[in-house]
């Protein structure tokens, strides 16, 4: 379970996040809010990419600030731009990268990445250069590269922003089918319809926290 305890993040003079407290036990949680409201900062805290200036976080009993390595084994993170998170030039070697980081041998990692690609219906892409994939395929590969590491929690920062409708739907379906807890930052309000809970951030504070229908209605009205 993820717990924020009066967490603040300060950048220079600016308070990017101001004494945020919340507990996040639900399986599907959306983070909404206008540009610059602190959404990315909020989710980056969860795997220790950002460290609190004050306050404390607890992720399944671990403190991301104190032990980011252990936390990152539990928390997978999918970024907005797949170009920057796919490290290797060939699809299957990128999927294998995360597995090797978990200590698998080269053979085990290669086999597991093949199996994962097949399982996702992407087997035909295994040997393809990443540079030649479409945006949607890239984002699926990025997601799969994180999924094969079997994190207990998945965090997405605007996973569908760069995608067309068809690819957006593929990613939405992939997120919907996850067994794990998923925390999704998005401006795509349709994506969060079936979620369990939505937080709305504004100016570094949680300004609404409800089931998605109510939170979205509140957000729409507020932003109009």
């Amino acid at each position: 379970m993820i717990r924020f305890d009066e967490v603040s993040v300060t950048r220079g003079e600016r308070r990017v996040l101001a004494e945020v407290s919340c507990v996040l036990p639900e399986r599907r949680i959306a983070i909404l809010g206008p540009n610059g409201s602190g959404k990315s900062t909020f989710v980056r805290l969860i795997n220790g990419l950002v460290v609190p200036s004050a306050g404390r976080l607890d992720v399944d009993g671990l403190d991301p600030a104190a032990d980011p390595k252990a936390v990152r084994r539990r928390v997978g993170f999918v970024f907005q731009n797949p170009d920057n998170q796919i490290v290797f030039p060939i699809v299957e070697e990128d999927i294998a990268f995360g597995l090797r980081n978990l200590g698998r041998s080269r053979m085990e990692a290669a086999e597991a990445s093949r199996a994962a690609l097949d399982g996702f219906g992407l087997g035909h892409l295994a040997a393809q250069p990443v540079a030649t994939l479409s945006g949607g395929e890239k984002q699926l590969v990025a997601l799969l590269g994180v999924l094969v590491m079997q994190p207990a929690i998945l965090v997405f920062d605007e996973p569908t922003t760069l995608l067309d409708l068809r690819n957006r739907n593929r990613i939405a379906a992939a997120i919907g089918g996850l067994d794990q807890q998923a925390i999704v930052v998005t401006h795509d309000l349709d994506l969060v319809a079936g979620f369990d809970r939505a937080l709305v951030l504004d100016g570094g504070r949680i300004v609404a926290d409800d089931e998605p229908g109510a939170a979205i209605a509140w957000y729409r009205e507020r932003m109009a």
């Binding site: 795997n47 980011p68 390595k69 084994r73 490290v87 990268f97 980081n101 590269g145 994180v146 079997q150």
Partner: peptide, 22 residues
């Protein structure tokens, strides 16, 4: 950041028991 997020530690990875999804 993405490399960090994918658990690269810059040291020979120890085989660690895999934790099942919660």
């Amino acid at each position: 950041e993405a490399i960090d997020a994918r658990s690269w530690t810059g040291e020979k990875a120890r085989s660690s028991p895999k934790e099942p999804p919660r």
